[in-house]
Amino acid sequence: MMKKILVTGGNGQLGSELQQLAPLYAGFEFLFTDYAELPIDDEKAVFAFFREQNPSYCINCAAYTAVDKAETDQDMAMLVNGTSVGYLAKAAAENGARFIHISTDYVFDGEATEPISEETPVNPLGVYGLTKLKGEQLAVAYAPNAIIIRTAWVYSAYGHNFVKTMLRLMSERKELSVVNDQFGSPTYAADLAKAILDIIVILDQQPNVDQFGGIYHYSNDGVISWYDFAVAIRDLSGSKCKIHPIPTTAYPTPARRPAYSVLSKDKIRSVFGIRTIPWKDSLKACLLQLQQLLA
């Protein structure tokens, strides 16, 4: 009997990329769910689902990601990013499933000056980061062998993200202004999806089910600003839009963003042998995927 991989948030950016890759991992049966199929904020429903489906792995891609809205919608953000993660982790642990949870660079304050390791002290700047940190804590509390993967600046051919927003704005306007003093590493969701599934293949071959638990960081390689990212999107897409660099102070938002959130990938590379890809190579792949979807 094939082992089952449950994916929550199955229609989001990462969930959609996992759906694209699933046929390549023929040794597993995939269960992609959205809220209608699995209301993750209903503890009884979560436990009933795990008992009925008996997955071997749960990849939690469900998240409240509206960073600015979270500042005023605190209860909902905490319910999705915190409390619900606890329900999933507890149900996974009690049913013998390995829990893999996706977290964020927003658990850090952006004060670092070199790539951030998994051991760096956390200090969220806003509600979104605070709720994601709570999710990490609950995941470990209820499923001590959980694997938490922090990522950053996620984009994809699917869903809402910076790349698709820039492409739309560049088609509508002659000029744009983008902040140039926030630095990080973009993450193509297709690359992250492959990394997660490759990790599951490794886990599946281990007799010690508790091996490899803990926090890991993953993003594409390189350090850029949002302005650099926008310029690359323009140049690779052939747009003629003029892009102006501006400081964060010229673009105030309800939630503060980390000024520097470059994640160190040393641990995930050394433990699992995961290959990380230069950000511009992955951006090219995503733009090609978008062209194919629109064709």
Rank of each mutant, 00 (worst) to 15 (best):
A77D: 07
G110H: 10
L176V: 11
N123P: 02
I277F: 06
E71F: 07
D41S: 15
K4Y: 12
T120W: 12
A139I: 11
A250S: 13
D191P: 13
Y188F: 15
K174C: 02
I116L: 04
D181S: 08
D109T: 09
C58N: 02
Y128E: 14
K4G: 14
A255V: 06
V154S: 03
A62S: 09
M166F: 06
I224Q: 00
G82N: 01
I40M: 14
V223P: 04
D34G: 14
K44E: 15
L203Q: 06
P144S: 05
L294K: 15
I149M: 07
Q292H: 14
V262A: 07
V107S: 09
K3Y: 08
A62H: 04
N11Q: 13
A36C: 09
P39N: 08
A193F: 13
D221H: 08
T72W: 01
F272R: 09
N180C: 13
A91L: 01
F50S: 06
L197H: 01
I196Q: 00
A152H: 10
V201Q: 14
L21G: 05
T8R: 05
N81R: 01
S177R: 09
Q211M: 09
I148Y: 11
Q291W: 06
L192M: 08
Q20T: 14
G96D: 06
P278W: 05
E52C: 05
L287I: 13
G27Q: 14
T276A: 10
I233C: 03
P55R: 00
Q19H: 09
Y87T: 01
K3P: 10
D105V: 06
A250D: 14
I147K: 02
S103R: 00
P124D: 03
Y87P: 00
A190H: 10
Y25I: 11
R275H: 10
F32L: 13
S16F: 01
I274A: 05
F49T: 00
T72M: 04
S84L: 01
P245A: 06
N220V: 11
Y251C: 06
Y57P: 05
A45Q: 08
D221R: 14
H217F: 01
I40A: 14
G238N: 13
R256L: 09
Q53K: 15
S185Q: 03
K164T: 11
E71T: 10
S270M: 02
V122S: 09
S237L: 13
R150I: 09
A190G: 11
V163A: 03
H101W: 08
L288I: 14
Y155S: 05
I202C: 12
M78G: 12
A193L: 14
G135T: 10
L6M: 14
S185E: 00
S237Q: 13
N11I: 08
T187H: 04
M78N: 15
F162W: 03
F30T: 01
A141N: 03
I199L: 09
P258G: 07
V223K: 15
T131N: 11
A97H: 03
E172Y: 00
L125I: 09
E172W: 02
Y260H: 06
L79T: 12
L283K: 05
L167F: 00
T187N: 03
L130T: 15
Q291L: 10
K132N: 07
A157S: 15
K194D: 12
E37G: 10
E111C: 10
